[in-house]
Structure formats: C-alpha cells, structure tokens
C-alpha cells in the first residue's frame, strides 16, 4: 500500500480542482470573490477542450519520448561519446527559449493551432528527457553490464534485458516531468489558437470574464495533477 501513497496528493488535488471547474461551483466561487457571476462554460464544451488538450499533450509526449529516448540510448553506446559532450550545453541553450517564444516564432511559419504547439512541446521537452535518459543509463552498474557480456549476451540483448529494466524507474520519472511540461505548454498553445483548456483562460483575461477564466485555470491544473498522478502510478509499477 505504501508505494501508492505518493499518488494520493496529486490525485486529490486534481479531483478538488476538477470540482472547482464545474460551472455551478465556479460561478458561486466567482460570486463569492465579489465579481459578477456571468455565464459559465458548459460541461460538454469543457470536456471537449480537455480531450483536445490531452491529445495534444499526449502526442507531444510520444514525440518527445521517442526523440529523447532514442538519442539518449545512442549517446550512451560506445560510439556515442562525441554526442555526450554537447548534451548539457544544448540543454542549457534550449532552456533559454521559453515555450511562448517557440509558439510565437513558429506561428507565421506553421500557422494557427496545433502545429506550433507541438513544435514548442518538442523543443522544450526533448533535452530534459535526453539528459534524464543518459543519466539513468549511466547509473546502471558496470558490473551488471559486464556480467551480461560474460554470459554471452549481444549488445542489443544487454540493452533490452539489463540496461532498460534497471534504468526504467528513473526514465519514467523523467517522462513524468515531461508530461507535466507538455500539459503546461499545451495550455500556452491557446495563444496560437490551439483549442485547449488554456483557451478560456486567455479569452477570459482578455474580456475580463472571470467565470470561464476560473473554470479554465482549475481544469488545466486538474489535468496536470491527474497526469502527474497517472505517471506516479506507472512509476510505482516499474519500481515493484
């Protein structure tokens, strides 16, 4: 039971925020804050936005995971040493370009909607995953690898049967951070016209309409916490 405990906090936070995004609750909350409780967003519209948000963030996570894991595995092979030197520098450089800026810069080239958001997800997510993967694979004890070689396993078998299982918990942890980043970046994508839970926040801020803004903010945060809880669950499964 104890290995499921870390999930409780984020899951509870997610559920509370989900209730907060309900039209009735958000309306009375805004009324209680002293603003005029105007029309709220319907549940079905909110659910459609949440689904699109999740698809965008999930798609981004898949791309980020493929690129980050692939490059991370390549960089930790024997011939990959030249790659490793540049990774930290590149990671620092990528961090200097905030997702909003990537979305903004990609807007004239890729147009409105999902594509600039996906590009921002990739730019911002790949380097942390790559760095995490390299760290996780380098932390695999040398003895384990040597023992596998002595048993006559091929390099590919060593990767699949020894290195990846040993590195799995750390890699899942990296992917958890990447998913939270992806949910956050997808919300920023609303600025480029992607229909996500960020859309009511941005529109509400522009029109001074507090109810949809509170709903959007609570729903976005709820989605992030629930994704976090799901990845923590996955991490608990890999740790065993």
């Amino acid at each position: 039971m104890s290995r499921w405990r870390p999930i409780l906090g984020p899951a509870a936070a997610g559920l509370v925020l989900m209730i907060l995004s309900h039209p009735r609750v958000a309306q009375s909350l805004v009324g209680w804050l002293g603003e005029a409780p105007r029309r709220a967003l319907g549940l079905d519209y909110l659910a459609a936005l949440a689904l699109h948000h999740l698809v965008l963030a999930g798609g981004g996570l898949v791309l980020v995971a493929l690129a980050g894991l692939g490059l991370g595995i390549a960089a930790t092979r024997d011939g990959g040493a030249p790659l490793r030197g540049g990774i930290d520098t590149l990671a620092a450089a990528a961090q200097a370009v905030p997702p909003v800026v990537v979305v903004a810069l990609a807007l004239p080239i890729l147009g409105f909607g999902g594509p600039p958001t996906l590009l921002a997800l990739l730019c911002y997510g790949v380097m942390p995953v790559l760095r995490g993967t390299v760290g996780a694979l380098e932390a695999v004890p040398r003895e384990a690898r040597e023992a596998a070689t002595a048993m006559g396993l091929t390099p590919l078998q060593i990767l699949a049967r020894v290195e990846m299982p040993l590195a799995a918990p750390a890699i899942v942890e990296t992917l958890r951070t990447a998913l939270v980043l992806a949910v956050s970046t997808a919300a920023v994508g609303a600025l480029a016209g992607a229909a996500t839970l960020g859309t009511p926040i941005v529109a509400g801020l522009q029109n001074q309409n507090m109810v949809p803004m509170v709903q959007g903010a609570a729903a976005t945060a709820a989605l992030a916490f629930l994704c976090d809880a799901a990845m923590l669950g996955l991490a608990a499964l890999t740790r065993r």
């Binding site: 002293g34 956050s184 920023v188 509400g204 509170v214 945060a221």
Partner: peptide, 23 residues
C-alpha cells in the same frame, strides 16, 4: 505541487484571487 500547475492556469487563478482580495 506548484511546479505541476501550468503557468497560464496559475496566472489566471492569481488574477481571480487578487480581484477577490481587492473586493
């Protein structure tokens, strides 16, 4: 926990809280 909350959502929530505080 704060790190998990997307920045756009936190800013929106803070605007709502600030307006409540001002009222």
């Amino acid at each position: 926990g704060i790190q998990v909350v997307p920045a756009v959502a936190l800013l929106g929530g803070l605007v709502a809280l600030a307006s409540g505080l001002l009222h």
